[in-house]
């Protein structure tokens, strides 16, 4: 009986397996193969040993890019988690009125649902370096300065982090908010009777109760931040002078701007390896939650 059921499952899975094979597994194998060739604009598949990987290690920019990636992901993740928690606690625990808290929750969803291109153009427009830029008008108005600032050139990393954090806020905040909502009301009552203040309730009841959610979101967002370069590409394109060039963006640049497909593939492979390690960690976190 059991065997028959198993057998029946395969035909149902087949269409998906085919799709997954064509669009994920085959490209993945191609990428691995490509990373071992010197493939460039001439499209010659020529085995070049591990030269691409050696090139990564020897590239003088590699250190800078790794550092950028760590700074970018680290800052963005820390800011995202902290802001997520603040927002979630505020809209769920402190604001009891359902309609007001839903209003705030929808508000922080806006950057998330805005197309990345529109959203990035909005930032560029706001931070325009001329005196017509919105931020510059504000800045000149407040400080009485006559010279407009080139914000993106001056604070590229800060701006890229801020723009990215805003887009990722919605997901984590909503996730935390529903996690807080699932804490039994009695626990808050018990804590209040036991003499816990608001801060102790947040740190002693809310945070420990949603600790697995925090771990999950932290890892999930890290994966997203490591692989997603669209916002950075659209706002600074890695510049000025490599200041915001992160690993994923550098793979894109090498492969599509410089047409060094083999080299780009090798850079991607390194990223995939890091992501896979993180995925394993994520799996471990979620399975511990079930136990």
């Amino acid at each position: 009986m059991k065997k028959m059921q198993n057998g029946q499952a395969y035909p149902f899975l087949t269409p998906f397996m085919i799709l997954v094979s064509i669009f994920y597994i085959v490209p993945a194998i191609l990428t691995i193969a490509m990373s071992l060739t010197g493939l460039d604009s001439s499209f010659v598949w020529e085995w070049n040993n591990f030269n691409n990987y050696r090139k990564i290690l020897l590239d003088p920019n590699t250190g800078k890019i790794v550092l950028n990636t760590v700074v970018f992901v680290g800052c963005a993740i820390a800011l995202t988690i902290v802001l997520d928690l603040v927002i979630a606690v505020l809209v769920t625990y402190f604001i009891k009125n359902e309609s007001i808290s839903s209003f705030f929750k929808s508000l922080i969803m806006i950057p998330m649902i805005t197309p990345a291109v529109v959203y990035s153009v909005l930032w560029i427009w706001l931070l325009d370096a001329s005196e017509n830029g919105v931020v510059n008008q504000l800045y000149m108005g407040v400080t009485n300065s006559a010279i407009p600032l080139n914000w993106i050139a001056k604070y590229p990393m800060q701006i890229v982090v801020m723009a990215t954090v805003l887009t990722s806020l919605g997901f984590g905040a909503i996730n935390f908010s529903s996690a807080i909502k699932s804490i039994p009301e009695d626990q808050f009552k018990a804590a209040r009777i036991d003499g816990a203040g608001e801060w102790e309730i947040v740190s002693g009841i809310i945070l420990p109760n949603i600790r697995y959610h925090i771990q999950f979101i932290a890892l999930w967002e890290t994966l997203g931040l490591l692989t997603n370069y669209v916002t950075i590409m659209l706002i600074t394109d890695g510049g000025p002078s490599m200041q915001t060039e992160v690993w994923a963006l550098s793979a894109y640049h090498k492969a599509f701007t410089n047409q060094q497909y083999g080299y780009g593939a090798a850079i991607s492979m390194v990223l995939i390896f890091v992501v896979m390690v993180l995925m394993l960690l994520l799996n471990k976190v979620t399975s511990r939650r079930d136990a």
Binding site: D186, Q187, K189, A190, A191, R192, I193, G195, G204, R211
Partner: peptide, 21 residues
């Protein structure tokens, strides 16, 4: 007065134990 200033002990139907402690 706030609950903590009343010197009361309370037991709940769900027990409301702190799961991480």
């Amino acid at each position: 007065k706030a609950p903590k200033d009343r010197n009361i002990g309370m037991c709940f139907q769900s027990y409301a134990l702190y799961p991480h402690l």
